[in-house]
Simulated assay, not measured.
Amino acid sequence: MSTSPDVPVQAAHAPVDPAHPAEPHRRIRALYTERTVTVYQAYSPALGVPAARDGRFPAAWKRERMTWIKPSFLWMMYRCGWGTKADQETVLAVEIGRDGFDWALGNACLSHFDADEHADRGVWRRELKRSPARVQWDPERDLWLRALPYRSLQLGLAGEASRRYADEWTLGITDVTPLAQEVRALVRAGETAAAAALLPEERPYPAPEGTPGLGRVS
């Protein structure tokens, strides 16, 4: 039975990404400059279109709710189905200040209990309750949105972090839905080299000391 190339495939062994043949198990990969880092989110057109048009999140964007940002473009494509899932039709590239991004990482807690990071579940629950950000490590994806054998960051922002993300850290918002559609079309046509050439240049990000799940940062 044939499968669509943009549908996740469950394989006996995770595929190897030739662009990253020797990746550590967890790493932040992102498009970034000296001042900014780009993260991705997907919204309904009612929210996404005015956000991209005005370069900031509209008043309708709920600042009291947790929001998840993803530095990995392909992980975002996996999450939103290349912008085809309901209420995720508008894919946004949000450029935020690195100082804000690093603040969130430095004030984050893992979204799940990890005995290597926490003395016990009670300690983790107390830390989770008071932390304005949450770190989650999810399998990175290849062009076919299959899971790779290493993980990338998903960062949840709540309370103070969510408000600061929307109103202080965000420096620009771009609608990259056309890019998502173009990459998907090239993958479906078997033109993987051309598709890969369009991807954002995501490099290892110098995470601050103490980023949850990374251990000691050299």
Rank of each mutant, 00 (worst) to 15 (best):
V7P: 00
P8E: 03
V9M: 13
V9P: 00
A14V: 01
D17W: 08
A19M: 04
P21Y: 05
E23F: 00
P24T: 00
R26P: 09
R26L: 02
R27D: 00
R27H: 02
L31S: 12
Y32V: 00
Y32R: 00
T33H: 04
V39I: 15
V39D: 05
V39G: 12
Y40T: 02
Q41L: 11
Q41Y: 01
A42E: 01
S44Q: 07
P45S: 07
G48M: 13
G48E: 04
V49Q: 12
A52S: 14
R53P: 03
A59L: 09
A59E: 15
A60E: 15
A60S: 15
K62A: 09
I69V: 15
I69M: 14
K70D: 03
P71W: 07
Y78R: 13
G81T: 04
K85Y: 10
D87K: 12
D87P: 00
T90A: 13
T90H: 09
T90P: 10
L92Q: 02
E95V: 14
D99W: 04
F101S: 02
C109Y: 07
L110S: 12
F113M: 03
R121L: 07
G122Q: 08
K129M: 08
K129A: 15
S131Q: 09
A133M: 11
R134K: 10
R134W: 10
R134P: 04
V135K: 03
Q136D: 03
R146Y: 01
P149A: 07
R151V: 00
R151T: 03
S152Q: 06
S152N: 15
L153S: 02
L153I: 11
Q154E: 10
A161I: 09
A166S: 11
D167A: 04
E168S: 08
W169A: 01
T170A: 08
L171C: 04
G172L: 08
G172F: 01
I173N: 14
T177Q: 04
P178Y: 07
L179W: 10
A180Y: 05
Q181L: 14
E182Q: 15
E182F: 02
V187S: 06
G190H: 05
G190P: 01
T192N: 09
A193E: 15
A194D: 11
A196M: 02
A197Q: 09
E202F: 12
P204D: 14
Y205K: 08
A207Q: 05
P208L: 10
E209D: 14
G210M: 12
G210V: 10
P212A: 06
P212C: 07
L214H: 06
L214F: 05
G215K: 02
S218A: 13
